[in-house]
Design a protein around this nucleic acid. Structure first.
Lengths: 173, 173
DNA sequence: TATTGTTATACTCTATAACTATA
DNA sequence: TATAGTTATAGAGTATAACAATA
């Protein structure tokens, strides 16, 4: 490859990059290759979504992790704490305080299991189940607002692509 | 709508949901509607990517935000602190400690601007520029590992979809 | 008055180590 | 020995309020 040809390719690459960035709306300050990185895009989207979530759920004082835990317990009554942790992707140690709070508010409860004396079986209280109906409504509005610019097939595809990153088998995890 | 028709639709909905979840690999514990939520998928993907990033960059002791800041400063020498903050999406107050650390390590430096005595103009040091070449190599490997399961067009589409969530104009932001 | 950088502070999330009681 | 839950602790990310210097 000659120097001239290389130069032309670099100009094309720069042009394509700039166009991609303008397309993405990052047109004020040059983010360089950041704008094309999956990790950067994921982080920014996550901040946007979490901020809206917190605002949406502020009147019921529920955070994203709490909503996730309540949902999993509701769908899988009797689950052990460690099972909820592995399903949601949090550490056992960090789950204790979280669950204490849900129990204190009367939304969930620990029951000692008969089969394994070490483990707790988790359930929603009646109050917790009623509460979840309200939470699902709030979440539906929140989710609609976040994905308002996406067609339904785009939203489904987005989730699928993200899951392929999350669930890809990797040697060093 | 009759009760029977409603029942059939619910069964179909459950079937589609279960299939979507198996498809996503969440087949051990029922995550309910969590598995289809963009926010949940984004959070899980972000954790996966950040953990790999931290492992990949552990030998150079660089965190995602630091890499982002160094990249933006390199591409836009002379930028003010507040400009970097708004570009990356962090608070001015939190940027101070971050920049102090980069300055302490001799990677970036603050220069007083002539036009505005309040502001600092930010630059990479020579050491910082050399360092960035190494960081970009590490990042390339990391990014490839994260997107190994995606075709190139899928990766580009993923970033574009995420940016449409991040950059969508919303009334209450 | 508004903006820039800064300090102080608080809360959440994530992670590790170590303990106890059961298995 | 290994697992389930727990406690303690540390570090990073995010957020707000308030201040001094400057615009």
């Amino acid at each position: 490859m000659t120097i001239n040809a290389k130069s032309v390719m670099e100009k094309r690459a720069r042009g394509a990059r700039a166009a991609a960035m303008r397309d993405a709306g990052f047109d004020k300050i040059d983010l360089g290759h950041l704008a094309g990185l999956v990790g950067y895009a994921v982080r920014r989207a996550q901040l946007t979504i979490f901020r809206d979530f917190l605002r949406s759920f502020s009147k019921v004082n529920i955070r994203p992790i709490q909503y996730g835990v309540l949902t999993v317990i509701e769908r899988n009554p009797g689950l052990k704490q460690s099972q909820v942790c592995s399903a949601i992707g949090i550490k056992r140690a960090n789950f204790v305080t979280l669950l204490n709070e849900l129990e204190r508010r009367g939304l969930a409860k620990r029951d000692r299991t008969q089969s394994d004396q070490r483990a707790n079986a988790l359930y929603l209280t009646k109050k917790g189940k009623t509460f979840m109906r309200e939470l699902r409504k709030i979440n539906k509005t929140h989710e609609s607002r976040m994905t308002a610019d996406l067609r339904n097939d785009e939203r489904i595809n987005l989730v699928r692509l993200l899951n392929r990153i999350t669930l890809a088998p990797r040697t060093n995890h």
